[in-house]
Write a protein that binds this DNA or RNA. Structure first.
Lengths: 143, 143
DNA sequence: CTTCGTGCAAAAAATTTGCATCCGT
DNA sequence: ACGGATGCAAATTTTTTGCACGAAG
């Protein structure tokens, strides 16, 4: 996934229409590329691009995007789920500090090592998530 | 993490008390070893072991257990978060079907390949999560 | 025109919090 | 006894749904 254009083509290919709201949501996610963002934040960002966009619209679209493998949904940050756009051209994973919540990017990807094993099980892999949890040096020293 | 005993010792070591509620919650998680379980299910299971246990108690304990690296919290299954006990003696990851939600276990672990890379960043890794998403053969054929 | 998408309003679900009391240690 | 843990009740926050209308292809 290189740019917004590809996402939009992918949507069309699946009979999804290109509404301004949807575009605004994708823009918000795109602007946040590489970081996690919660539904609430996506909603506010979307508002500034297309005022009036409803929260339910945001959720409905996040669900679609997730099913299509365009975004990821994860649970860090206590309560609300966070989302992240998947960009192949900068494919990466995260290490998340359990102390302060800070995240850093890991560029290595472990998938290649076990693709075969998995497809033996009859599953067709279309996406994956790899996250490391630990403590950054600051938080580690505080203990 | 081999058995409940170790979890209990780990709690004591961190000044957490061993209440019957907490024990019941751990038991519920333990009984579910290897599978995901939502807070609601944990609560019901806990009730049968120690009736009266409150939902808030369940959540407070799940938070503690997660912070201690004893359980994992994930988002599949639309709404609620799901939890899973981490057992070293049967360390594994999951592949999750985006169609029907079915999960299967992957025993290979990708972590060893990139431990060094990560610790270079100053992070101390204490836990990790690796999840594959795709379609099981049934759901794949339906498309 | 046909189908999908949206806003609105409301509900349901999930999670969190304050506080008085209770119970492990 | 002390300090953490619990239950209760209530509030918040997050997410989902039904429906009539509007808009994209």
């Amino acid at each position: 996934m290189v740019d917004k254009g590809i996402i939009e083509r992918k949507l069309k290919a699946n009979n999804y229409k290109l509404t301004p709201q949807r575009r605004a949501i994708i823009d918000a996610l795109f602007e946040h590329r590489g970081r996690f963002i919660a539904a609430g934040e996506i909603h506010s960002k979307t508002l500034s691009r297309h005022s009036g966009t409803d929260f339910s619209t945001v959720y409905r679209n996040l669900e679609i995007l997730e099913k299509m493998g365009i975004i990821h949904k994860t649970n860090i940050r206590g309560g609300a789920a966070v989302y992240e756009l998947i960009c192949d051209h900068s494919h990466h994973h995260h290490i998340i500090c359990k102390g302060c919540g800070k995240t850093e990017i890991i560029s290595a990807c472990p998938l290649e090592h076990l693709m075969e094993d998995v497809e033996d099980k009859g599953f067709t892999v279309i996406d994956h998530k790899f996250e490391l949890y630990g403590y950054c040096s600051k938080c580690y020293n505080k203990r």
